[in-house]
Design a protein around this nucleic acid. Structure first.
Lengths: 409, 409
DNA sequence: AGAAATAAGTCAAGACAATTGACTTAATTG
DNA sequence: CAATTAAGTCAATTGTCTTGACTTATTTCT
């Protein structure tokens, strides 16, 4: 009847959705607990032993899990534990950064098996796409030489680049990557690789990595602050990465705040003070310099008297950011990760102590309020590669729902 | 095997979960679109016509939907539209505030059918529980006199009170309600009413109301800023209210910020400047005064020269809050709602214009960046009542999953 | 040493819910 | 008035989980 206005509704589900969810739940449980018997799984997932047996049998046939030797554990028949097979699935991750691009191959448990890096010419997508596709191709070949079955088991390509997405760029804002953001990257990559592709921003990718193999492993409510060239946050809410209405959730570097000493109505983005970009600007370093980390480390070691001033300003903002994010999200923990030298990360976290008082000061805490996560130039690329694994194997609402298609009958 | 460490896993699902979800999806679709035929529903939910027919038949038998007269719409057999039956379900809402308590009865479509209010004696739960249970009892009787079948169709009791929850309270902080927060309210209410009870904080309740029948109806990503005695935010993310790890998500009034003119390291909670409590303090009004709204209105009308100063300070904070929340969440819209006179709400929203620049300045917007929602002393109570309706009938991940229970065999 | 208890896991039948494809009904179009 | 289109039903089928009885393997008790 209503052909005029579109009908708004959520999608229904069916037995396939049920089965898909239960498979994902098993994989998730094995990932979290290392190894579990069928009986363990039945108890943990509230499914019956029989259902678990059937699903495990399927997963074993599909090469995603394998049995270990039976263990005696008190009375009753010994149980046979199962664990994930690392070689059960692979994914490729791509990071497009301002000056470089990186690719990574990971397996089902998140182990990095291959990596490659190239400079990205300044010409934007027109020249960059070839570089990128070549790099992906090389990584796939490297992966295949280690794991011959990898091509059949590739579940997708995850791409990560600085956000925000879908925002009109005024002029040549050095903080954005205008040309790439207006380029149909997903379609190009999908066509060029034949893989399922998804796109995240840097901080989301970093959070995805933390969730799969890092400090947020098994933590369903976590905020990952990503301090790199820019500043962002990856929001893990109810065990899933939150994207927002336009995929721009977590772009905290663009929060306007009043710098210390500034006039009342002067507000500038946070990342003008708290980011590696701001540090480079102050220390007159070239962000594209391959020796950047070494130079920053040298500054941290006391060779640059301008560093304490930057640190002080950045920490001033970050302390407020952590308190605000804790207050807004009520997470189990906040993780500081990013593309910066580990020494600097440690320095920042130490300088942030004591944290500002917040609701997170609870007696029943099991995780620290603030911890250091991955600080590695490859963290974003790893997260990019983790995304297809997560998309394919993690339990999530959207995986249960039917995909919309015309009703044939 | 692993009896020592607990096994962490998500819950599985089965056909019951499938069916429950599909029923919820139908109800949600009817709520959003007013009326739909079975064929419409099949298209919108990606289910088959037959499945939809079966479920609609069930829902009709359960008294949750009803058919309307068939309408001809072009070629083909006329379709029979269905809509929700308002009397299909009822819920009771309870608001416990600092000085008063309110109860509300709503039906399936969110219409308020009964309301009651009482002063809350200062003695805390010891004396207050009786007042509350009496008020609920009265509301149930009033409801039953309007809708005789209501008792059989009550789906639950929603309670709302100021947060935060589970935080140690130092001394008699006037911003908290220590005695109530340490009281086993849920258990007491469940025992005293025989209903399923859930607890939210004020701002979550306000957001629940906006979602069911207000400005966030059908909006899956929305932030509701609740400006009342305190300041909070209700976070609607992916169509569900986000609670955080301890139910304290959205307590933005407790974000520490530097007041204008304050020293660099002086940080105080936002709600010291942006809340009705702060207004009352400044204007020397008694928050418990039944004439409070009239007095505030008088001040708004120009009778108090101190108001512009408060407004200026509050707006200064709120503009930053809106920009920050937009940047963090990337929502479709921000809604300002709360327990304050509509005139003041309008004044605040007007004074907030122009909003600070943010990612939300997109050309493809369909909703305003900031809108005014419910401004009504009863808004929280309505939201409290909306919660059991939402819990029972809205599609959500948790509704699909099996509830954990010992495997019998 | 042998019986009882306990727990893991399998087997086969059954229940449940969505799907499929053919069919009926009732309107518009030409 | 025949052809077309769309809503909705019927009856059989399929896929997935559940149920309850059973088998197997180990520890504990007498």
């Amino acid at each position: 009847m209503n052909d005029l206005r579109p009908i708004r509704a959520k999608s229904g589900t069916n037995q396939e959705g049920t089965s898909a969810h239960n498979r994902r739940v098993m994989i998730d449980a094995l990932r979290l607990n290392g190894q579990l018997s069928r009986a363990d799984l039945a108890r943990a997932t509230a499914l019956t032993k029989q259902t678990v047996s059937n699903i495990i049998e399927d997963l074993e046939r599909d090469g995603l899990v394998q049995s270990l030797t039976a263990v005696r554990n008190g009375r009753g028949q010994p149980s046979t534990p199962y664990r994930l097979v690392a070689e059960g699935a692979f994914a490729i991750g791509l990071q497009i950064d301002r000056h470089a691009t990186r690719t990574i191959a990971v397996d089902l448990v998140g182990t990095v098996l291959a990596r490659a890096e190239a400079n990205l010419p300044a010409g934007g997508p027109a020249t960059g796409v070839k570089t990128i596709l070549d790099l992906i191709e090389k990584t796939r070949r490297d992966l295949a030489s280690i794991a011959p079955q990898s091509e059949q088991r590739l579940v997708g390509l995850g791409a990560a680049m600085p956000g925000p997405f879908g925002v009109e760029v005024d002029g040549d804002d050095p903080w954005m990557m205008a040309a790439w953001q207006n380029f149909p990257l997903l379609e190009t990559l999908a066509a060029g690789t034949g893989l399922d592709v998804a796109l995240q921003n840097d901080s989301a990718a970093a959070a995805t990595a933390e969730r799969l193999v890092g400090a947020a492993h098994g933590v369903d409510q976590a905020i990952c602050i990503y301090l790199g060239y820019g500043l962002g946050a990856g929001l893990i809410l109810n065990g899933e990465l939150y994207r927002g209405a336009n995929g721009n959730a977590g772009e905290i570097g663009m929060i306007l705040s009043r710098p210390r000493g500034a006039a009342e109505h002067e507000r500038t983005p946070l990342e003008y003070r708290a980011s590696i970009a701001s540090l480079c600007k102050l220390l007159e370093l070239d962000p594209a310099d391959p020796e950047l980390y070494a130079r920053i480390d040298a500054a941290v070691a006391g060779e640059d008297i301008r560093l304490p001033g930057w640190l002080d300003a950045a920490v001033y903002e970050l302390r407020a950011v952590v308190q605000a994010l804790e207050t807004v999200f009520d997470p189990q923990t906040v993780i500081l990760c990013g593309g910066l030298p580990p020494g600097l990360a440690r320095l920042i976290v130490d300088a942030m102590q004591p944290l500002l008082a917040s609701l997170a000061d609870r007696r029943d805490r099991s995780l620290p309020r603030l911890q250091v996560g991955f600080t590695d130039p490859w963290a974003v690329a790893i997260g990019a590669a983790a995304e297809p694994i997560s998309r394919t194997f993690d339990p999530r609402f959207s995986a249960i729902l039917k995909t919309r298609s015309a009703d044939a009958s």
